[in-house]
Design a protein around this nucleic acid. Sequence first.
DNA 1: CAGAATCCCACTCGATACTG
DNA 2: CAGTATCGAGTGGGATTCTG
Lengths: 118, 118
Amino acid sequence: MTRRVYDCQAGCPVESTLQFISGKWKSVILYHLLKEKTCHFGQLHRDLKDCSQRMLALQLHELEQDGLIQKNIYQTKPLSTDYQMTDFGKSLEPVILAMEKWGNSYNQQHSTIEEAEL
Amino acid sequence: MTRRVYDCQAGCPVESTLQFISGKWKSVILYHLLKEKTCHFGQLHRDLKDCSQRMLALQLHELEQDGLIQKNIYQTKPLSTDYQMTDFGKSLEPVILAMEKWGNSYNQQHSTIEEAEL
DNA sequence: CAGAATCCCACTCGATACTG
DNA sequence: CAGTATCGAGTGGGATTCTG
């Protein structure tokens, strides 16, 4: 993996997982790739509005180095690239989907509360 | 929640989840609390070897403010406190357990490879 | 023991400009 | 379009010290 941020305790499984997905935007990128199968750089850049171009490139690069995603370059003009999950990346699907499920549930409850407050 | 780091897109469920667990040590703390039900500050400090006392206090405070964990203070001498998950915090169990499962699987494969390399 | 306060350096990360 | 290079402000976070 690119950077080891956590190692409180050799073998802590949660830390092992975090080594791969703890980057600022990694989980979100993986989520988009999981849903859309293939994404162009520009598309991700539009979707992740608050992620700068530089950050996006960095995160994608780390994900690629960690073997979670694969980059394909097409020598068209202008240049075009896209990204997709590797099999290793896809193995993280349960983690990402668990996050999605919890987030959906939270968003529902939260919007209900907001409506009640109006 | 204490800080909103992500909001690329209103309603992205993964981002909603990350707002709560994206802190540097939060997932690990939640994992420990999930497994051990109740933890004293010192115990967590020992378990998360590479998390400074200051960081641990900060993360615990944010988790408490977000309503994921509950803090209990005992006016003994010397002072003692412990932490446990709230019901809201427990709702994140599937996410944490998914991380644990993936991490265990990864660790197994990784140790096998290391053995093969010896 | 459990934490708050202060200090301060290293690094993160956004903005901008440039390249193939 | 899909990045890389450079720079500078802001902040994360460790070390240390102090309190109840």
